[in-house]
Each structure stands twice: as C-alpha cells, then as structure tokens.
Write a protein that binds this DNA or RNA. Structure first.
Lengths: 277, 277
DNA sequence: TATAATAATGACTAAGTGGTCATTTGTCAA
DNA sequence: TTGACAAATGACCACTTAGTCATTATTATA
C-alpha cells in the first residue's frame, strides 16, 4: 500500500528531528498532505506506526549483516565487511538510526521494548557467529569481544550520526578491524562469562532473586567477620528478607551500615531494588 | 532547601522508570505528597528541574573522575581506578544514569542539548588527559583510544543498568584495563584525526559546509572520470549548488545517479542534508 | 448514466498537559 | 489572642494530544 510507505517515510523524518513522543499525528499528516482519518486507515495507532518502522528497518539491517557474515568466503575479510556494512547501513537509514538511538531505552510501551530486545539479541547472535567463524568456537573472551564490537559500533555511530563531518568509512572499518583483531588475539582477562551473560539476558524471578541475595549475604557475612555492626546488619536484613517485620526507617538504616563497605555496594543495590526503595 | 531535594529525588525515580516527557508534574507532586503549587515554588518549570538534575549529577560524576585521573600517583593504576570509579558512579547514581541515557539525544530543548554536550566534552577531556599521562602526549591513535574507552564504558554500563545481575566491578575494570592497554600499545591504524575530531565537535556553518561539498565533488569528479553520467550529474549538482535552478525532481534524480556508486554515499548524504531533502 | 463500494475528510471528543493565582493554612513575635 | 507574614494549596486555564465517525468525494462496475 502506497499510503503506508508515504507515512512511514515522512514520519521517520519527523521522528529523527523531534523524537517519537514529541511528534504528533497531526504533524505527520500535514507532512504527508493527508487527513487524520487517512492516517488511521493505514495504521491502527501511533504505536503501530513506530512498531512497523522498527520491523521494517531492523529486518533489513539485521539480514544485511547476517548475509555478510555468512556469505563472505574469506574469513579475514569478514570483520572488515561487517564494520563497513554496519556503518553504511547507519548512513543509509540514518533517520531511522537517529530515532532508534533516541528511543532505545524508553519503557513506555512493553511491546516496543520486546522488539528492541529481540533485534538486539539477533545482532549479538550474528556477531558471535562471526567471531566463531574467525577465531573458532573456543575463544575464551568471546563474549567480551562481542561486547567490544558492539561498543565500537555504538560509539562511532553516535559520532557519525550526530555530526556533519564527512567520514571515510573505509578507514573507520580498517581501524576497527585492527582493534578487534588485537583484542581477540591477545586479550586474556575475561569479564562476561556464559553464565553472567545468560542471567543478564533473562531477568530472574523475584524468588530466584531472593535466593541469590541470600547467597551473597552469606558470602559477605563470611568475608567481613571482623566488623560486628556489619555482621548484625546482615543478619537482621536476612531476617527481613525471610519475613518483613521492620519499618522502612530501620531497613534503610541497616542498608546504610553496609553501603559504604568495600565490595558491598552491589548487595546494597540488590536489596534496594528487591524492596523497591 | 529541603523541598528541592525531595522533588529531585522523587522525580528522578519516575524519570528513570518512564522517561522525562512521559512523567507529568502531577505524578511528581503526588509521589512527593505535595501540591502542584509547591512544585512551582521550588522550580520555575519542569525543564528547570531536569536541568538541575543534570547539573547536580554530572558535576559530581565529572569531578569524581577528574580527581581520580589527576590524583592517582601510580600511572599504572589510573586506568583501573578510572573504570572502577566510572562504573561505581553508574551504580551509585543509577536512576540518573538511566534517565540520562534515555534522553541523551533528545532535541526538544536547546539548553538541554548544550548541557549534555558540555559534560560530554568534559568527560572526553578527562579521558584524553588520562591517556596522555599514561602513554605520553604523542600517542598516534590517542583519539581512537579515547573513543574506544567511551565505547567500552557505554556498552557495559548499558548491560549493567538494564539487567539485574550482580556484577563484579573489579573484574570488569581489570578486563577493560587489559583491553585498553592492548589497544594503546599496539594499535597503529588511526581513524579519528585531530582535524576530523575538531570538525565533528564544532558543526560548521552552511557556507563552510557548501565549500566542503564543492571540494568533495571536485575530488569525486576526478576519481570517477570514466563514467560520463556521473561526471555530468556532478557538474549539474555543482551548478545547482552555486545557483538553485532545477526542480526537486531533477535534483533527486541527479542524486540517484551518484548514490549507488562506490564511495559516493557520503557526498550524496551531504548534499541531501544541505538541501534538507 | 446509475449504483455500489471504497477512500478520504476534518470537526469533534475526552483525556491529559504545564503552568497560574486567589485562597487557605501554619508559624511566629508581640 | 491577635495579627502579620510566609508557605502551601488545588481549582482552574489555555492548549495539545490520540483517536473517532458521520459525512463527502472518488472510483469501479453494471
């Protein structure tokens, strides 16, 4: 349908300039030279429009990269082609890329978030597949390399999209290939383990979270035997975790007791987010 | 003033969950248990609130990092401390970090953008200063290392903020130190030159932009001598640049002629953004 | 040409926004 | 207890929003 395409194009231009929420359906229809009713004939809602845009572009972007990673015969060319294709897509779909980067973390719409997560994990799969093709399945820092690649593409895309300077994509790709190769061949200190990665991707249930917190408390209690205040605080927090009894002020105070201890920041954070305080 | 602080705290929680625009002043005042009027006694407008938040947290964050980079005596500890401090700040101010990442590229408010750019360039200065301290002033890939560091911190912060998994910040910092050292010591292929970097940071005027475009057209015309269509297209586009005469359809067609040629994507983009089409 | 079917319109609604200000409440010293 | 001053309130305003639907225009078919 022609209308749909027209709306998508014009809307995207506006979204790129102003953001999704700041752009009204009115503005979109004016830009298209159509009526408000016509808009709602093409799309059920404003949300459906952005969802369609995400699908349209991300399918293109993702499959482009997938083809390159799968079809490039020479493994020593894959990385270069990956980076080059990545940045030229960002250029080609720059309006979409801008909108996407803007709204990437907005939480106002559940479906929206799910879609973005879906395509993000697809991209991660593609990068991992590429890494395995080039460096073999058993590269110990595989996941960190994947994250480094994502970091590189993100930060340079940002520069690329939000400045007006002409970039030499060839030089950029070459420069990133060298960096990636260096990291893949020499980096030995891992951070992202398979387990950590899986956990980060699949957020745990409240019950599982509680188990994990108790585990860490036990560990920390053991580590900090010489501080009786911390010992007691942990003990009381553990009670509270099993059966809420103390007032918010008391809980807050107990958390304060442990917050400033070395290596206790994370457990403090976990407890806070568990109790939503 | 206590009220101001209360509002800032509660507002930040809401912003982190829903985003700035999606959070109404009403919601904020409800969360604080105060009236709408009281809000406007503390802040002149909703915009003033977010601007205050940015200042409050970014000043803290920036000066924390600055101290570490300046005051750490042992140069071989600086990198580690930088990364560790960076991520613990993200943890400490996680609500702010979420909000900030969400709104980072929104363009609805000029002052907002200026502030974010200001603090971003401060951060870049600090990182550059750190790099110079560790590796000396003449590291050839200085700016790319700076961007790599930004890329690392960005992408891991993202994982860190939007997942619930407990992270070992020590391990993360160590892992990133190793990566940075590898890049700084062995990377030889530069991408970001001093000139490119300066241009990206200080967007050029329309007149300068035109000059630059003409320059690139001349260069490309020279490169692609064997394609007469491209030659003529460039020649006509140059005319149009000096004095607009052709209709939009003709200009669009000329752009199509050059768009798909290798290495002509950027100039096509520049022309499009110059003519705002 | 007449009829049916489809496409497009834009005034309208209900809900929600940021921001204002006449009024009420609270807190002092006298 | 009074009165003066500041702090806090929330009904209210003008405006914008996404979405609806009775009406009109266009097209295809008989």
């Amino acid at each position: 349908m022609m209308k749909k395409q027209l709306i998508m194009e014009k809307a995207l231009e506006l979204f790129a300039k102003q953001g999704f929420e700041a752009t009204s359906v009115q503005q979109i229809t004016e830009q298209c030279g159509i009526s408000k009713g016509a808009f709602y004939l093409a799309f059920k809602s404003k949300d459906e429009l952005i969802l369609s845009l995400i699908d349209h572009f991300m399918m293109q972007f993702t499959s482009d990269l997938d083809c390159i990673v799968r079809d490039t015969e020479e493994t020593n060319e894959v990385l270069y082609k990956f980076y080059y294709s990545n940045f030229s897509s960002f250029y080609k779909y720059s309006d979409f890329a801008k909108t996407f980067m803007k709204e990437q973390t907005h939480t106002f719409n559940e479906e929206f978030i799910l879609k973005i997560h879906y395509y993000d994990s697809q991209l991660e799969k593609i990068i991992l597949c590429m890494i395995e093709r080039i460096y073999g399945k058993n590269l110990p820092v595989k996941l960190d390399i994947m994250y480094s690649i994502k970091g590189f593409t993100n930060i340079y895309s940002h520069l690329f999209l939000f400045s007006q300077v002409p970039f030499d994509l060839h030089q950029l790709a070459q420069s990133l290939v060298e960096k990636t190769e260096l990291l893949a061949k020499h980096a030995k200190v891992p951070f992202l383990t398979e387990e950590l990665y899986q956990n980060a991707k699949h957020p745990v249930t409240e019950e599982q979270q509680k188990e994990k917190i108790l585990e860490i408390i036990d560990q920390k209690t053991d580590e900090l035997k010489d501080d009786s205040i911390v010992q007691e605080s942990f003990s009381l927090l553990k009670q509270q975790l099993h059966e809420p009894a103390f007032s918010p002020a008391i809980v807050k105070g107990l958390l304060e007791n442990i917050r400033h201890h070395p290596n206790c920041q994370w457990i403090t954070y976990l407890l806070q987010s568990y109790w939503k305080i």
